[in-house]
Each structure stands twice: as structure tokens, then as C-alpha cells.
Design a protein around this nucleic acid. Structure first.
Lengths: 343, 343
DNA sequence: CTGAAAGCGCTTACAG
DNA sequence: CTGAAAGCGCTTACAG
């Protein structure tokens, strides 16, 4: 009896239920001022007609899209994919969907710039993941008149969530120093001109700080820049380990992927881990376990959730506008078996 | 002079240019039947007013959203993240945006089911990545009346793009057999009850086929199921390698991540790769290089692009409706240094 | 080549 | 508690 050729609209539901479209709208959205009996009847009819409100019409009328733009420079890398994934789940749980903006280009270390038409009137808010924005982009985002939050990268005057990179590096370095190492290398300072600069710099700084605190001289020729790939880091470590008379007994790595590269380099030199050389990373990458890598864990899920919580708080009817709040999440030392006292 | 408090609409542009909104609409969208002079004037005015059409209004009026839904079961895993990334770029190049549907749940191997309200009227098409759909879900997708394409998993009666999994496994196995191995294990058959079953089964079949072709008996106790994590695969390999009198000289792995686990297990047994044991994977994971892993490469970018091309072909005005076409992309043996003749 | 008007499918004051 | 009507900002025949 209720077979229909086309999809049903709110008008169909109203007609079938014998009420006005306004009442259908209120009933289905759970607004008050609808009698329980009416609401129930409308619910039934809507269900029978397989009615689903057109999101596009709802958006136009209400001015809200229930969509959050998530802007990512390198969507397939571990860190970014993990954050996007957790943001997606947190948003889904609250009735939002995610429109994904991939800023990656073919050229290494280059990215697309944000444009007004990408986001304009499309999203209720935006989360940017570890992107150093230009002034122009910040202006553009401001002109959108929607809340914005940054994960990982601190944008001037804007809310952000992330970890304390310097502290994470300090934790890693302290673990190594406490084991008795004094000949320690750091791989993971920033590449010159690299797009992402805050994290590498902070982590390298954390490393230097701890050495100084312990009166260990910092050998700057053992503080190496890398493009943060395992492959490049492997090559760097291969070099540092070449001279048996003069080589580090431990590596503090700016990330787990860097540590993977160092691990491979050590093996290629027939060095035992951790007997001959200790390696510690930062991240707790999903492959850290197979490498038995000691590392400082950062919780991507917690960061994604915190970003969503912050953002939606601003979106709430009586939303706060603490737009420059900085949420700093804790990190945690995970001891596996890639670290030990020096030989 | 053109300072404005609120954002400008098509009405503002029309007024400022002294034409009707219909003309503005045609001019800005590049439709014909607009005089060059008028078009140019409208363009200028629109630019001055920073006019960007409201996508939500455009969608409601036109019935098209310029958005493609991308449905993913495990968004942060290498394969899925890579496909999503390439799909995003291909769509962006053609003026579409991606709405990301993450079906992952906390429970292992379980996923969310698609519901009508997730996609209804939101997207012009959907790409599902390696998802075995239920009948209900297929019905639902059919009821959406938008084109659908599956990457990786062949859905009955629907278009798909992917690689030939059995052929990839055959390539890998042949490489091993040609090196002279006869004691060969395969890790990567499907887990019982796993959600993803086609790929593991096909790859295991490819392995068995080649052994049979070469008259090598298949030891089923050396064809192992895994959850496809490096960690679990490492444990399995640790077991297989425990008995020096009776162990495989080579491992064909259903994926590179599996191969990483096997690599670690071999090292833990103080076995040399490839001298004592050969390992080959399938994928060409971004970390395959540091592992010096010989593997059979699948091109995620090509797969994402092919999916987008297929989908948009159906969306074109005079679109084909070859809805059950299967695009099979080639794979390629990449020889690094994890494989050699048996000891 | 251009415009007036209907229509897309909802939400939201405003009345009652 | 419910309805009539305006409005969200476009696109699309239909006229001219």
C-alpha cells in the first residue's frame, strides 16, 4: 500500500499523517511542543515511507551542515591517518560527518593552499592537523565564521590540542641517560625549509636540554636532520655507526619511523640491539611492537577526541569561545627491549 | 566601497552587475547563451564581492552535491589510507569533495553497518574500499540511485577495481620456487570468520597453485592463518622456525606487514636474511624499502584513480552504465634483498 | 542573449 | 500543541 516510486519528502509524511509539515519537522527532530500521540503517529508514518530528511535542504534552511572539515597535509602517513580516524569516530558519535581535505601534492614537502571556496558554507567547523598556516589562510579561516581547532601545530591565537613535544623528547632522553649512556645521537631535527618545523625543533630542544642538565656535552654533529622517513634515517645512522672507535651507544629518535631506520642500520652493521646500541623512539607506532622498540607513546585517539570535544563545545548553543585554549595531552614511556645500559 | 558586513549572495552580485540572478548563475558556471561582455562584468563583480555560491543551495536546486562518499572499514591501515588518499586527490582534480565514512569499531574485525540516513541525498556516488557488503547493504546502496564502485572487494553485480590477488601470490611464489626453494611456508590465509576473506583466500590459492604446478607438495601445516598484523605473524613464524631440523627455507607472505613480522622472527632466531631464510611479501608497503623486502607491488594510486574514473564516467551526462565492469590492475615483482637461493 | 517565476525540501518565527 | 507562510540561495524550464 505504501509502495512509492520516488523518494518521500516531508510533504508526503505530513499528508499521510494528516498534519502540517511544520509539525512533522518538529516531531522528527524531537523538539518539544508536540503531543506524544502526534509525534508517535508521525514517527510511524515516516518509517513506513522510509522518510529521511534531505540534508541539503535541512542545511539550507537551518544554516548548519552537520559537517566538519578535516584538513590534512599527508593523509596516508601513520600520524595523520590515526588522527583522522579518531576524529571521524568522535564526530560520528555526535552526529557529524567529516569532509576530508587532502592538501598533499606530488612535490615533496609542498602542499596545496586552502581556498575560500573549498570550505565556504560547507562546514560547521574545521580541524586542521599539523598544518603551519600562512597569514592568508588564517584570514580565510577567520572569514568563514566557524570555529577552528588545530591538532599538533600551534596556530597563533587559535585553539589547539597536542602533546608537549619537548617533554616527550626529554622523557626519552632521560631514559637513555639514566641507563648510563653518554655518547648519544639524536635523529629527527627539522629539515631546512621543511613545512613542519615546530615538532622537530621542540623534540631536538628537549634532547639537548636533558643532556645539558646532566652535564653531557651536546655533539651537534650527532644531532641530525632527516626528512622523517625510515629510509633516510637509516642512511644517516649507517654513517654514524661506521666508525667502531667513535660511535654513539644510543640513539634518541624524533619518531618511531626514524627509530625503525636506525634499527635496520644497526643490524646491517651487525650490532646487537640493545646490547651494542640502544634505540628509543617517540610515538608508539603500530609497528613499534614488532621492533620491540622502547618509545614514548602519544595517544592519537585522545588527541582526536579532545579536538572534537573542543570544537563542538564552541558549536553548542551557549558555546564557549575560549578560542585560544591549548589542550596538552600526556605522553608515556613504554619500555620494550631496544634500550639497555651501554656496552 | 564594496565593504560588506555579511557574506554576499547571488542577489547581491546580480544587483551590483545590473542583471538578473539567472544570468549570474549562467555566467559564473560557464554556460553558454551569455554575452562575453556580460559574463566578464559579472565575473569582476563577483570577485569584488568575494562571492562564492552556497554549495548547499546549489545542491538543493540542482540535485547534485559534488560530493562522493568514501566508505572505509579501517581508515588508518596502510592499504586503506593509501587508497583514500589517492581517491581524494583524483576527486579533487575533478571538482568533487570526499565525505569519509569510517566503519571501524572498537571490536576487532567488526564494523558498523551502512544505514540509509548516512548517505541519503548526501552524495553523488559512493566508493567502498574492500568491504564485503551484506545483502541489506547492497539493497540500501541500490536504493540510493547513485553509482557505486568497490575497490578491492568484488561485490556481486557491481563495478570494481583491484588487483588479481591470486596472480600476485603466484608471482611471489614463482620467484621463490625459481630460486630453488622447496620448503616453503605461506602466512596470510584468512582468519576463520574474518570480515575480509576474498583477498586472503585468493592469495593462499595462488600460492598452492604454483607449488602444485611445480610438483611440490603443499604442507597445509605451513599454510597459516593470521590476523594480518605484523605482531601475530611474527609469533607464527617464531613457531615455524623453532625446529632447526625441520623448518621452511622461505616464506611467502600474504602482505608486507606479515613479512615484517616474519623478518623479525627470523632475526630473533639469529637467522640471516636471505642467507638462511628468504622472505617475500605482497604490497610494497612504504616500509618495505628499509626492510630490503622483495615484494610484489600493487599500485594504490592507480587503483584509486581507476575507481574515480569509473565512477565519474557513470556520472557524466551521457554516462555509460557498465555497472558490473571489473578493472584489474597489474602487479609487479620488486626484487630487493630478502630473497636468495636456499642454504 | 536575458529575465520573471517556480521549485528544490526543509526550518523558523509568528499566530492562534 | 499546531498550522500557514516566509525564507534559506540557488537552478531551471519557459518566455521573449
Amino acid at each position: 500500500m505504501t509502495e512509492r516510486s520516488g523518494p518521500s519528502t516531508i510533504v508526503d509524511v505530513a499528508a499521510a499523517a494528516g498534519v502540517s509539515v511544520a509539525t512533522v519537522s518538529r516531531a522528527l527532530r524531537g523538539l518539544d511542543r508536540v503531543s506524544p500521540a502526534t509525534r508517535e503517529r508521525i514517527r510511524k508514518v515516516a518509517e513506513e515511507l522510509h522518510y529521511v530528511a534531505s540534508p541539503t535542504a535541512t542545511s539550507l534552511a537551518s544554516g548548519q551542515t552537520q559537517i566538519i572539515g578535516v584538513v590534512v597535509p599527508f593523509p596516508s602517513r601513520w600520524y595523520f591517518a590515526g588522527i583522522v580516524s579518531s576524529i571521524g569516530k568522535a564526530l560520528r558519535a555526535r552526529g557529524y560527518q567529516v569532509l576530508l581535505f587532502d592538501l598533499e601534492r606530488d612535490v615533496f614537502d609542498a602542499r596545496l593552499t586552502l581556498t575560500r571556496s573549498m570550505l565556504w558554507k560547507r562546514v560547521d567547523g574545521v580541524i586542521s592537523i599539523n598544518i603551519p598556516m600562512t597569514e592568508d589562510e588564517l584570514d580565510l579561516l577567520g572569514g568563514l565564521h566557524v570555529p577552528i581547532i588545530s591538532v599538533g601545530y600551534r596556530l597563533p591565537g587559535r585553539a589547539s590540542v597536542g602533546i608537549d613535544d619537548a617533554a616527550a623528547a626529554r622523557t626519552a632522553t632521560e631514559h637513555i641517560v639514566e641507563l648510563g649512556h653518554r655518547d648519544i645521537a639524536f635523529i629527527g631535527a627539522g629539515m631546512a625549509g621543511a613545512a613542519l618545523i615546530q615538532t622537530p625543533m621542540s623534540r631536538a630542544d628537549g634532547f639537548r636540554t636533558v643532556l645539558r642538565e646532566h652535564g653531557i656535552p651536546v655533539r651537534e654533529d650527532w644531532v641530525l636532520r632527516t626528512d622523517w622517513t625510515a629510509e633516510h634515517s637509516r642512511e644517516l645512522a649507517l654513517g654514524l655507526l661506521a666508525d667502531p672507535e667513535q660511535r654513539p651507544t644510543a640513539f634518541v629518535c624524533g619518531s618511531d619511523e626514524i627509530a625503525f631506520g636506525v634499527h635496520m642500520a644497526a643490524r646491517e652493521h651487525d650490532l646487537r640491539i640493545p646490547h651494542d646500541v640502544s634505540i628509543i623512539g617517540i610515538d608508539d607506532h603500530y609497528l613499534a611492537g614488532v621492533f620491540a622498540l622502547t618509545t614514548v607513546r602519544q595517544d592519537l585517539t585522545a588527541q582526536g577526541e579532545a579536538a572534537v570535544t573542543q570544537l563542538l563545545a564552541e558549536l553548542a548553543p551557549n558555546g564557549t569561545t575560549a578560542r585560544d585554549e591549548q589542550v596538552v595531552l600526556p605522553t608515556e614511556l613504554i619500555v620494550r627491549s631496544s634500550t639497555a645500559p651501554p656496552p
